[in-house]
Design a protein around this nucleic acid. Structure first.
Length: 206
DNA sequence: TGCCAGGCCCTCTTTAGGGCCTT
């Protein structure tokens, strides 16, 4: 299992036409940050044309307009570039199940497979920050005083905020539970551990 | 016609229901 400290991770966020690729929804923007040993080393952001107009709700929610998408490259072209960007890196997102299903759907359209596994800041934060008001990305950014200028619901900014949250969560886990080496396997196991057992699990983790 | 996402996770649970989170 890859070691998160020793390998680069790509933190990604999609803006989309809706909630479900199974219902025909498409990606309209991908933003991502590559981190290596806790340091941001690269980033990626592109709008992509889904081939049809987006709803008023999505335009207002994201600030992305049909005019902006009309001149954007097609999804297939952008996703091919994004495939090169992520390579075989492990992946991270806030509510990763959402971004994974869009990544899988868009990659399936260009017949591309990827090797990385997903970790999720939402699932991790529900265990690490049990006293947070809720576990929305914006709330957690404020909860940990990570706020900076930018627009939530744009892909790169959300990926940047998810990156900050991730790095703070790793620090908090290291400091609270004296963990020197946080591996991918720990994050996976943590996501399957109940909230009530989280403290015991991390305290006993070797 | 009526439906319309889905995975996670808690609890007044497991023969289920409903809230959270993402766009």
């Amino acid at each position: 299992m890859p070691n998160l400290n020793a390998n680069s991770i790509v933190v990604l966020d999609f803006e989309t036409t809706g909630l479900s690729p199974q219902q025909g929804d498409r990606a309209i923007e991908i933003g991502a940050v590559k981190i290596c040993d806790g340091v941001v080393v690269d980033s990626f952001q592109e709008l992509m044309n889904p081939g049809r107009p987006i709803s008023t709700f999505i335009a207002e929610y994201t600030g992305i307009t049909n005019a902006m998408l009309r001149t954007a490259a097609p999804c297939a072209e952008v996703m091919a570039r994004f495939a090169d960007f992520i390579g075989d890196d492990n992946l991270l997102a806030h509510n990763a199940s959402f971004d994974k299903k869009f990544l899988d759907a868009e990659f399936a359209r260009i017949d591309h497979n990827y090797a990385g596994e997903f970790a999720c800041t939402l699932l991790t934060s529900r265990r690490i920050y049990q006293d947070a008001p809720n576990h929305k990305l914006g709330t957690l950014v404020n909860y940990k005083n990570l706020a900076e200028d930018g627009a939530f619901h744009r892909a790169l900014f959300d990926a940047q905020m998810t990156t900050k949250l991730w790095l703070v969560m790793l620090d908090d886990m290291r400091n609270t539970y004296q963990l020197n080496n946080i591996e991918f396997s720990l994050i996976k196991q943590l996501a399957k551990t109940s909230k009530a057992n989280t403290s015991r699990f991390l305290s006993n983790y070797q």
